[in-house]
Design a binder for these strands. Structure first.
Lengths: 263, 263
DNA sequence: ATCTTATTTATGGTCCTACAATTGACTTGT
DNA sequence: ACAAGTCAATTGTAGGACCATAAATAAGAT
């Protein structure tokens, strides 16, 4: 019957409808969150020191273990650095581009993102990066690119792994020349992963190496000339060419699997 | 004189040239790294359980505190979840898109990335997202978009904050329709930050709201029709329009400062 | 029989205490 | 002036004890 409703206390929470399961946050999480806000919201300039662990213990009433776990969270987030010894302690930091790249890598590897998906992202980012680089490159940017190009030229005929590595540096330098930190970080971590995949596939034949150098020269010229649209289209073509080469080398759905990449 | 070189042991390390400062990694870092590799490289399917803390203590010889700090690192990286209680423990997880977005947000806020830089990234990502969405959208994607559009229509005249929030959902749904996880995560976190900035600036006048709805309708039509290039160009125009509106509202170099965004 | 309710128990969560390792500043010696 | 040694504050690590949580199970009530 309709009124045959048990009135046990297991149903008492029907009064608390919509609350869902109450969550009991860990004390270290709470502290980490609190410190994170303080760090982000204001005060704390870059090198500033947080209270020592034992000070945090006394101010928060938590145990030192919990405090340390909170600090470890912040450290993993890249918000603080920690040094032992007198005058050491935890100091406020900025999450580095490498740090962000490492988390992006974790995301990608944890989900077995396909290589073609990676190329799609690259195809979205790198032309935009090149266009901005053409508009904003400084003399330092250009000379850095020239130096890398010189090393690539040398390595192309002598040291294959150096060639691939400098290739990544090349892309990184262009991303730096865009003078957009976020775009830089995105583009760098994506091309870094492409680099790993390339090493595995060893697709860099002499012919490919030659074409890469040629493409680089044309892209550099566009950036040097400050022609954003030209740089964009040339990079776009380059990435697409790379994609089609890779497509002929690799089975279409190969995924980026886990490798070293120690942060 | 040239041979007046002190031979104290402070110079003894000249023999070790190029080593730089030797680093002494923390035991928790070592363990975290080791577990991370095991998780990524192979074994460990998604829900699988890691050894219990006390088992790790006995197998590694470390203290429980160090083990817990290592696990906390992995947790922050999104690689594991932890549940207390019997049959609880540490289980392998995938870093979620939200997780990645949270780290991206930290990077952005920690560096005070300018709003215009954010727009540049959006301008790189969203047109590409829309193009892919047009090619790959499923019926579910389309109906989700329709539902959101309906809620936006309602909220536009009734609830401003709901309007802004659903606006984010709209962009998220399109990103989901691209069926590229990484692109999705990138685009979502960027537009999420734009949302925060928009709330602060309260630029959403009735006129703007009207134009947003119109733009959405045109973009949806392109995606529904499966016309990638049309979707791309329409989104590109939309983002640029948004940028110029924002430019007239905001002083050019305002930066995205820290706000809540609790993961 | 069926549904509560209590118990059990393996697990993470927290606290405490003590000591080791580190490292920059300070002191001392030459 | 400078090299070496000492000091002190701080993080790093260990070990132990107990609490809180939660799923499986057993006991009990209807």
């Amino acid at each position: 019957m309709a009124n045959d409703i048990p009135l046990t206390n297991s149903n008492a929470e029907s009064m608390l409808d919509g609350l869902g399961r109450i969550k009991v946050p860990k004390s270290s999480d709470v502290l980490a969150e609190r410190l994170k806000r303080e760090i982000l919201s204001d005060g704390y300039t870059l090198g500033a020191s947080l209270p020592t662990e034992r000070e945090l213990v006394s101010t928060t009433g938590l145990s030192r273990g919990s405090v340390r776990e909170a600090l470890r969270i912040l450290e993993t987030q890249g918000l603080v650095n920690t040094r032992a010894g007198r005058y050491g302690g935890t100091t406020v930091a900025q999450p580095s581009a490498d740090h962000l790249a490492s988390h992006i890598n974790l995301y990608i590897k944890g989900r077995s993102v396909t290589l073609s998906a990676l190329i799609e992202v690259r195809l979205a980012l790198e032309p935009a990066v090149a266009a901005l680089a053409a508009e904003r490159r400084t003399e330092e940017d250009l000379s850095a690119l020239r130096a890398i190009a010189k090393r690539i030229d040398w390595a192309a005929d002598n040291d294959l792994s150096a060639f691939l590595e400098e290739n990544v540096n090349w892309h990184d330098a262009i991303a730096a020349a865009s003078h957009n930190d976020l775009l830089h970080a995105f583009a760098t971590s994506v091309s870094g992963l492409m680099f790993e995949a390339s090493q595995i596939k060893e697709f860099a034949s002499a012919d490919v190496r030659q074409r890469v150098r040629y493409a680089h020269a044309r892209i550099f010229a566009a950036i040097e000339a400050g022609d954003a649209e030209l740089a964009r289209s040339r990079v776009e073509r380059d990435v697409q060419a790379y994609a089609s080469i890779l497509a002929t080398t690799v089975a279409g759905t190969s995924s980026v699997t886990a490798v070293d990449q120690s942060r």
